[in-house]
Design a protein around this nucleic acid. Structure first.
Lengths: 259, 259
DNA sequence: CGCCGTGTTGACTATTCTCAACCCAGGTGG
DNA sequence: CCACCTGGGTTGAGAATAGTCAACACGGCG
């Protein structure tokens, strides 16, 4: 089984064998979580970085009245909280969605990786910036689109991201998410999520049942969602980057971490 | 007139005179823009970092059908696009809202700052992470709250941010934003924005006219908005951080930039 | 067997949108 | 100096998307 972090970051750049070994070594220590277990809570200031190896997790914010908004999904290969390097206190929480395996990367290991492996450091920056771009796409999604388009967009995104780490199977992928969770993600009610999924199914675009998502016609779904995958920056930007800026010469130790 | 960037970052940490001089020097070269002028467009890959010195700007995404979603506001002291260090191509655009003064910081100057002034580098990381936290808060806002609460939340946030750079005047601040722009920000129609502002005014919470926002009762407004300012991380996290982690000893050259 | 979590359906409600008209202030040109 | 034009703000009436509440179906599991 290949390391999903490496797999993910290779969508941006190409690693040396040495880089890969370092990443593999850093992700040895793992922890197994049940479904719906909190990994970090609002207010915490954890000392390790959590990397999702298997399963699904999410970032969420609780509101006073008990409602919850899911702000991001994590799929294998995603780092949950690089921000702990700087911000004193978490302003949101992170929890598993399905049973999951999480690698715990100690802060110092992380620092080491970034100092001695500039290409890794650069790739981690890339992944942070992609996360930010994804947040922007989500704002557009909930603010501008109808329930039908929103759902289509979310499922497109998840499918693309899973595919980027090799976790799709033809037109299908695992998606162990309840309709209630989709509702908390899209700012809809569970009832309306249910009806929206029925509409998508009726239109022959997709099916979501038994924790499996099947997309019958991806390009039709993209069209329905107005989905433009550019914000995922899956185009191996890193390679081009090296090519066009390789004269700069200061890559050696310049991608160092925040502290 | 003090440098708004310094003023902003001092909400996180304390600079030496040397740090401040470097920042002042880096922000010498400025450019004046009219209202509603694009600074960077989707697809560009600019070679300078834009820092807003005076006026208001925003980040936005265009949709196929001509709708536009505003994703962030920039107030004086905000850096528009540190991400240009890594991502090949902008996946959104940036434009002024009012007439504005923008400092152009060349990439190399930025690198220099980060390499030779670790406290600045750390503060820039902080500002990036706060931007990300703000995106999360916006997702919650558009996904979960009513028009009334949404508007209250946005205006609370802007007031807090302006206050943090000394741009409020008692209960008031400049806010040269049209109702149509507020609509594009909150995912509402201009008509509904108009009615919502009337409701807020009728309830004695605030007034927005002639490009001036006046908040009559800030804590009532916060309550109405369920506004929790923790995501702005204005609590001088940097100081605490130094205190609690000062033994680490690797701060000297560890906050280096992405390339 | 019965319970609980999840998904499904129906009927009714409400927040928000759409469209269209109108007002007002400021700037421009005749 | 006035007429006009334009951008922004305001109002009304009707439509639509999404929410609420309540009931029921289904399957897994203790």
């Amino acid at each position: 089984m290949s390391n999903p972090l490496i797999r993910k970051l290779e969508n941006f750049t190409t690693f040396s064998e040495d880089d890969k070994q370092a990443l593999n070594k850093a992700t040895q220590q793992v922890r197994h979580c049940r479904a719906r277990e909190d990994i970090i809570c609002e207010g915490d200031c954890p000392e390790v970085v959590n990397l999702l190896m298997e399963g699904y997790a999410c970032r969420y914010k609780d509101m006073q009245d008990g409602r919850r908004q899911i702000i991001a999904y994590f799929v294998p290969g995603d780092l949950c909280d690089i921000s702990v390097f700087i911000l004193r206190e978490m302003d949101h929480s992170i929890a598993t969605v399905s049973p999951a395996t999480v690698a715990l990367i100690p802060r110092d290991t992380m620092l080491d990786l970034m100092v001695h492996h500039p290409r890794i450091a650069q790739a981690l920056w890339w992944s942070t910036l992609v996360d930010e771009a994804t947040l922007r796409a989500w704002i557009v999604n909930v603010a501008q689109r109808t329930a039908y388009e929103r759902m289509a967009h979310l499922l497109c995104e998840l499918f693309f991201r899973l595919r980027a780490v090799g976790l799709t199977n033809g037109h299908s992928c695992q998606l162990p998410v309840t309709q209630a969770e989709l509702a908390e993600t899209l700012g809809l009610t569970p009832v309306h999520v249910n009806r929206t999924l029925q509409d998508l199914r009726r239109d022959g675009l997709l099916e979501l049942r038994g924790k499996v998502l099947t997309i019958f016609d991806l390009s039709a779904l993209q069209r329905a969602a107005q989905f433009n995958p550019n914000y995922l920056h899956l185009g191996h930007d890193g390679e081009d980057f090296h090519a066009s800026h390789s004269e700069r010469g200061d890559q050696g130790n310049s991608m160092n971490p925040p502290m």
